[in-house]
């Protein structure tokens, strides 16, 4: 019999870290991780045998995050990468505290995709192939988006002001 605690628990610290970095709220982040683990357990048998558990878990987690973002988006509003930006920085609210040279604060100004890429590759140390699996994109696309994400982050850190979020009406 498969022991899920051996299969899944070693990944929990990384899943929590990624979730927290995306939502910046411990409770909400752990809710996401819990949902992710529930899905992983219930769908374990549907997983491709050769698939890497780590990138599979991050795929589920990111999809849950995106679902949550979509649910929060008001009906009739444009949905897409830009729309995700609104929810991108939960600590944003009205006041944006600017801390120069703070990569974590600078990250808030980027799109969801750029943030997820920088976190998964830079912090979680996923290989480019694993990241391509998580995003469901060819590895070449991942590479070019990673370059763009790094450029965005550099600019955000360099400028004294955070990159203003584009608001979608």
């Amino acid at each position: 019999m498969l022991d899920f605690s051996i299969e899944l628990e070693p990944h929990i610290p990384a899943l929590r870290r990624f979730a927290w970095a995306m939502v910046r709220d411990s409770q909400a982040a752990d809710d996401l991780v819990q949902d992710c683990l529930e899905k992983a357990i219930s769908r374990w048998h549907t997983r491709r045998q050769d698939a890497d558990a780590r990138s599979w878990l991050f795929t589920i987690l990111r999809n849950l995050f995106l679902n949550g973002v979509r649910q929060q988006a008001r009906r009739g509003r444009h949905l897409g990468i830009e729309a995700l930006d609104d929810v991108a920085s939960p600590d944003g609210g009205g006041e944006r505290v600017v801390i120069a040279k703070d990569a974590l604060a600078a990250l808030d100004g980027l799109t969801e995709e750029h943030r997820a890429l920088l976190l998964l590759i830079g912090v979680e140390e996923l290989s480019y192939q694993q990241a391509a699996d998580v995003f469901g994109l060819p590895i070449g696309t991942i590479m070019s988006r990673l370059s763009r994400a790094r450029a965005q982050l550099r600019r955000a850190i360099e400028s004294d002001e955070r990159v203003p979020l584009r608001r979608v009406k």
């Binding site: 610290p13 929590r16 870290r17 927290w20 970095a21 990569a103 974590l104 600078a106 976190l119 550099r154």
Partner: peptide, 13 residues
Amino acid sequence: ARDDLRQRLAFIA
């Protein structure tokens, strides 16, 4: 920047 992110997020893991 990457090292800064790692360091700031380490506490959760």
